[in-house]
Amino acid sequence: MAPAATADPVAPAAPAVRFDRVTKRYGDRTVLDGLDLEVGRGERVTLIGPSGSGKTTILRLLMTLERVTDGVIHLDGEPFSHMPGGSRGKLVPANERHLAVRRRRIGMVFQQFNLFPHMSVLENIVEAPVHVLGESREDAGRRARDLLELVGLGDRADARPTRLSGGQQQRVAIARALAMRPGILLLDEVTSALDPELVAEVLDVLRDVARSTDITLLCVTHEMGFARDVSDRILMFDRGRIVESGPADELLESPAHERTRAFLGSVR
Rank of each mutant, 00 (worst) to 15 (best):
A4N: 14
A4C: 10
A5N: 14
D8H: 09
P15K: 02
V17L: 10
V17N: 08
D20R: 06
V22M: 08
L32T: 00
E38M: 04
E43K: 00
R44F: 04
L47D: 15
I48M: 11
K55W: 09
I58D: 06
R60D: 12
L61T: 00
L61E: 14
T69V: 06
V72Y: 14
H74W: 14
D76T: 09
G77I: 01
E78A: 15
S81V: 00
M83C: 06
G86K: 03
G89T: 04
K90N: 14
R102C: 09
R103H: 02
R103P: 09
R104D: 08
Q112H: 07
F116G: 13
F116I: 04
M119Q: 15
P129F: 03
V130P: 11
G134A: 07
E135F: 11
E138D: 06
E138N: 15
D139A: 08
R145Q: 07
E149G: 05
T162Q: 13
R171E: 09
A173H: 01
A175C: 08
L178Q: 03
A179I: 03
P182D: 13
S192R: 03
E201Q: 13
L203C: 12
D204R: 11
V205Q: 11
A210N: 08
L217N: 00
H222E: 15
H222D: 03
E223S: 12
D229S: 15
R241V: 11
V243G: 05
S245T: 08
L252I: 02
E253A: 10
P255A: 02
G265T: 06
S266T: 05
